[in-house]
Design a protein around this nucleic acid. Sequence first.
DNA 1: CGTTCTACGTATACCGTTCTACAAATTGCA
DNA 2: TGCAATTTGTAGAACGGTATACGTAGAACG
Lengths: 352, 352
Amino acid sequence: MTTGQKNSGKTTVYPGRATIRNVAEDAGVSVSAVSKVLRDAYGVSDALRKQVEASIEKLGYRPNASARGMRGQSYTLGVLLPDLRNPFFPEIMAGVNSALERTQYQPLLGVSQSAISIELALIESMIDRQMDALILIAPRLSTTEVEKLGKRMPTVVLGLHNPENTSYDTVNNDDVAGAEFVVNHLVDQGYRDITMFSLELSPAEDSPVSVQREIGYERAMHAHGLDKQTRILRREQTMREVQTAVRQLLESRDRPEALFCWSDKIAFEVISIATEMGLSVPGDLAVVGYDNSLFCDLAQNALTSVDQFGQVLGIQAARLALERIKGRTEAEHFLVQPRIVIRNSSRARASR
Amino acid sequence: MTTGQKNSGKTTVYPGRATIRNVAEDAGVSVSAVSKVLRDAYGVSDALRKQVEASIEKLGYRPNASARGMRGQSYTLGVLLPDLRNPFFPEIMAGVNSALERTQYQPLLGVSQSAISIELALIESMIDRQMDALILIAPRLSTTEVEKLGKRMPTVVLGLHNPENTSYDTVNNDDVAGAEFVVNHLVDQGYRDITMFSLELSPAEDSPVSVQREIGYERAMHAHGLDKQTRILRREQTMREVQTAVRQLLESRDRPEALFCWSDKIAFEVISIATEMGLSVPGDLAVVGYDNSLFCDLAQNALTSVDQFGQVLGIQAARLALERIKGRTEAEHFLVQPRIVIRNSSRARASR
DNA sequence: CGTTCTACGTATACCGTTCTACAAATTGCA
DNA sequence: TGCAATTTGTAGAACGGTATACGTAGAACG
């Protein structure tokens, strides 16, 4: 029979809430009038607005986002993060949040665990949920796929350089400049043999930030006449991969004087392994990171790092997303100038 | 009339997608039939199912979650985090994600920035968005408010002990036991003068985890006859508050031998300040944290900490939420037994 | 004074699902 | 064979908003 479902009906266990119709009735006006007030649409007298707003207040009415999503907007922005463990991403979110604070829009996060399959599923699922726009943070997707996505819905991307594309906006810090700052600073402190620890790319990805940072690194090394010392080590981001590579590098005869890591996360790992091996930082090895994340400031790390102003990036991303929703269709590309924050991990090299 | 304007008028710049009607048409069946297949409902022959599934596949159809939300479920779970910067929360999320991986349900995160006003707004906004259930992680809300919420919709709470409540489920680690482990371990290592650094509560909050950990601390200290050494320092979670308090404590004449911090985040800060002051850990001060978060393992921290199995907590929370959605109404309370992970920061005390 | 604007409101057709009520076809059984 | 029971499928009314099309006053204008 299958009649059993006791809580089947729509009334379920949990009580209903005021609808736009209730408000209209209470205010003695039409449903359309209420809708107009809600949307701040044309053709509403002051008196009507007051009237309706009073009823809304009185009934504690809140519009149902699903219903809205069916016809117009859902007032929800989807934000896609690869990983919550990277302390840089929270900064961006803080920016997004603060930019949307006083608007009707609500950002909701999805976490892809750095897996491209989950990333794709998450994007689809956000589209299913009628998100008004998507903010992708450091996506694994290829630029062509993101470009396709941008044609489907308003899209803003952080951490993927591609100024030529037309269908989506980008927000980035100037990774080339950031890397140049690092090399210049290290050279300044007396280091010459500077290796870069970068990210191994899967074939699918094409222009994430690490590539830009490599360009900046190479360019600056070249400018200082250090072509012979130029060395880039690339590894996937898994702990095991990173640890063995770092250990190997630090144990080898030609251990560099300084190591520029493409992210703080890697740099912390480097400090850890160096410490374990009895090497002192910066005495035996200078270390520089990228992101200037929370933990750089702790004395046990004291990590020199490039600050890319995550909050600013987040604020701009939110702004661009809202503009897209409002109707802008030409792509816009925002670039923040980073700064280097100097700490003990790159202190001047003692002359030998 | 109203033939099939394929692009349906208002579809703006972005193209439409297949609807349940398209699928029905393509498969040559009724809309209800397709809906039944989607919901795995009673009264579908094998042949029909095959037929419909083929069309779904062919058209790349995906149900619109907003439309679903209007009638029944939205297949979305809202997860509320106070703060992304705390490295413990990602663990929980990983658990939630993995538990929902193979289901139709999608978890979406909201971040309250540890502000009770944002937390409330976020909860409302998730209700507006027809979330099927809410998972609150370490909420600032009082238990009474959460209780009210639990009557409105399926709710699971992490990090708020209240086994007596009836309207919502809880998932926790045994904080009392965890704190006892810490004290027992420190005593074992030869420490006697053990201070606890805990959390200052606003009047609104009533039983967060820190209180439970205080109870465990006090109980264990008492069991070891260390009532006279029992000392709890409470501070709000802001960096400034914590730093000045720690500095003061470490500078004072009666600096403790060991400091048990209610969270890793605090413990890292303690290590930093101690390092800055020239104190060695554990030589001059043993430090223990709580959460066993990612960075404990780094050699520069080497922080002994209590592992509360965040992933397990997340998995259980997701399970309970799904059960609630399915119709369970009696509250369930899940408790995980934590374990202590011993590292260098609490190494045996050298006898004086 | 008749006509055209403009400002303000309303009626109502959707949007894409779910799910109840019901019809039709098939099966079971005496 | 007749009739009830079961299985399989369909029609169509919601759900709670949005937005178009339209009606109705006054005001402005010639």
